[in-house]
Amino acid sequence: MKTATSAGLLLYRDRNGLEVLLAHPGGPYWRKKDEGSWTVPKGEVLAGEDLYKAAFREFVEETGFHPRGAVTPLGSVRQAGGKRVHVWAVEDDWNPETLVSNTFSMEWPPRSGRIQAFPEIDRAEWFDIATAHRKILKGQAELLNRLELLRQAE
């Protein structure tokens, strides 16, 4: 059963300016989509689960990476479909070429009777903040603004 709440981690680093790690959703519906389709690695919060623990678990499941950097809460946003997304910023570095994502199964092509497995995320990339604003889902863009404000206050 799907929940209207998810949690995730937004990795960031400073390499001649702020960069963030975004994930591209896997599966056939997202294959040809780019700008406005990238996301913070996130996923479903299980009943009774601590939000940060869910965010960490989902990040690891979707990337194969265990972040160890400083953690800062960015609060939550509501996406267009109504889902509430709780996010923490984590300062860390990671090579997205080592991505190992969990998978999901669905009937594809539709009405074919064939069940196929697809990665939750098919790739992840580092983006400078201006590019990230173009790539990220509209409902998550506020998270980038919050991260920028926090970094300016440091």
Rank of each mutant, 00 (worst) to 15 (best):
K2I: 00
T3C: 06
T3G: 15
A4F: 06
S6N: 13
A7P: 03
L11Q: 14
L11V: 14
R13Q: 14
N16D: 15
N16C: 05
E19F: 01
E19Y: 02
V20H: 03
V20N: 10
L21M: 03
P25M: 15
G26E: 03
G26I: 05
G27E: 01
W30D: 10
W30M: 09
G36N: 11
G36K: 10
W38P: 01
W38L: 07
T39L: 03
K42E: 07
G43C: 05
E44I: 06
V45W: 00
L46E: 14
A47C: 04
D50L: 06
Y52C: 09
Y52D: 10
K53E: 15
R57Y: 09
E58D: 13
V60M: 15
E61S: 02
E62R: 15
T63Q: 04
T63C: 04
F65Q: 04
F65C: 00
F65R: 01
H66L: 11
H66G: 03
P67K: 12
P67I: 07
P67N: 13
P67S: 14
R68W: 00
G69L: 04
G69Y: 06
P73H: 03
V77N: 13
R78E: 13
R78S: 06
Q79R: 14
A80Q: 14
G81H: 09
G82S: 09
R84I: 13
H86C: 10
W88L: 01
V90K: 00
V90S: 05
D93K: 01
T98F: 08
L99C: 02
L99E: 03
V100T: 11
S101V: 13
S101F: 06
S101Q: 09
T103I: 07
F104R: 00
S105M: 09
M106E: 11
M106C: 00
E107L: 03
W108D: 02
S112F: 14
G113C: 09
Q116A: 08
Q116F: 05
Q116K: 15
F118E: 10
F118H: 12
E120F: 04
D122L: 07
R123T: 10
E125N: 11
W126Q: 01
W126K: 10
D128H: 15
I129E: 09
I129W: 01
A130Q: 10
A130T: 06
T131V: 08
A132K: 05
A132N: 13
H133A: 12
E142V: 05
E142D: 06
L149W: 11
L149F: 11
Q152F: 01
Q152R: 12
Q152M: 06
